[in-house]
């Protein structure tokens, strides 16, 4: 009975080894010139993984092959070109033994400045209020002196 349990456990470990790899992309949003890191986990020891990034226009903008560590992990970084288009980039990963995640990971490239420019009026308002208070205080002081 003990031997049967041990064998079942061994089979479970083998099947776990065949689980799909996990892909993490950081950061989730960045601007051109920023560096995105693609990390792979849960792969098989020493296996090769292919990484492909497609831009919002479905062009291949990165293709790279990495070898996972003995613990089944690996990563690569990519500096977003300054001319990169804005939008969602899809990251496809597939490994020769552990396979591929069901859906691609993604990240967003946005412009350096927000879509709408909003002028910050708070310093101007603060100066106006201060001037008003000081003028009012001065008027009150002058009137008190006259009395």
């Amino acid at each position: 009975m003990k031997a049967k349990l041990l064998l079942t456990a061994a089979m479970f470990v083998v099947l776990l080894g065949l689980a799909q790899p996990t892909v993490t992309v950081t950061p989730a949003t960045l601007t051109p010139g920023g560096i995105v890191t693609i990390s792979i986990g849960g792969g098989a020891s020493g296996e090769k993984c292919g990484i492909e990034i497609r831009d919002p226009f479905n062009n291949v903008v990165l293709a790279r092959e990495i070898t996972l560590t003995p613990t089944g992990t690996g990563s690569t970084s990519w500096q977003i070109p300054s001319t990169a288009g804005f939008g969602t980039y899809l990251v496809y990963v597939s490994c020769e033994t552990s396979g591929a995640p069901a859906t691609p990971a993604s990240f967003r490239v946005t412009s350096l400045v927000g879509g709408e420019a909003v002028k910050d009026l708070s310093p101007l308002l603060l100066t106006a209020v201060t001037l008003f208070v000081l003028t009012a205080a001065a008027i009150v002081a002058v009137r008190k002196q006259k009395k």
Binding site: G50, E52, A63, E65, E96, G99, A100, P104
Partner: peptide, 23 residues
């Protein structure tokens, strides 16, 4: 310079993706 030979892109091949030559 890195040179790869694959059976296709990971986006096309999915879990069937494989290198066909050592990089």
């Amino acid at each position: 310079i890195e040179v790869y030979v694959w059976n296709g892109f990971p986006s096309e091949k999915g879990a069937a993706w494989t290198p066909l030559a050592p990089a």
